[in-house]
Nucleic acid binder design. Structure first.
Lengths: 105, 105
DNA sequence: TTGCTGATTGGTATTATAGCCAACAAGATC
DNA sequence: GATCTTGTTGGCTATAATACCAATCAGCAA
């Protein structure tokens, strides 16, 4: 694999890695419906706000989210909408796994 | 977040996490064109064959790939085809990041 | 049987990730 | 200014991921 190819896949992996966590996938799903402040997401997820804040910064750093401060609150939203389309295929794999497991039992 | 929701996102994260590595994204891309044996992928990637074998088992364990042994060789292929469609959106984020960086400079 | 090829598994060192608490920063409100 | 609310950052520990080498396993062939 040459350097150019490696760079291309590293750039892609950075994005995928940023999504590779239950809370972060949940955040993406929530933001598909519109912007949310950190406090709302913290309530929904039920983790420490510092933890949620770090998840959000991972997604922002990857270019998936953008934020905007208004008053005391910081609102996050999706920067590239198509992200949500990914879920349909992920869900297809999940379903396929469920069926495979059912077949074994 | 209730237990059911948490389980759903954990299942999804398992799949996304399995893809979250440059070599594994490369493997998925290669297999989109048809099955490959471990030796071919090892050559293409240029890592130790034990490393490639482990990447493949991560993808298989997640339900993304399936394998078949024929003679001495083990062939891997995509189990759920739609996985490849994910790349178009990932690439959109990558491009968006490139443009944002260009704007800064 | 012996040896060869292709692939997996075990061991290990290095590095990255996750989550909490505590401390701090930025606005709003009194 | 004092204080409350909302978020971020630093520090820490625990856990997971990565990659290599070495050893092993499985199938083929001499």
């Amino acid at each position: 694999m040459d350097a150019k190819t490696r760079n291309r896949y590293q750039a892609r992996a950075k994005i995928v890695k940023a999504m590779a966590h239950p809370s972060r996938l949940f955040i993406i799903d929530q933001l598909a419906e519109g912007e949310r402040c950190v406090c709302e997401l913290t309530d929904l997820i039920g983790a420490d706000k510092s933890t949620v804040s770090k998840h959000l910064s991972v997604l922002k750093e990857a270019g998936i989210l953008e934020d905007e401060k208004r008053g005391l609150k910081v609102y996050y939203r999706l920067r590239v909408k198509c992200i949500t389309r990914i879920f349909s295929c992920i869900e297809a794999v999940v379903q396929s796994n469920v069926e495979a497991n059912a077949a074994v039992v």
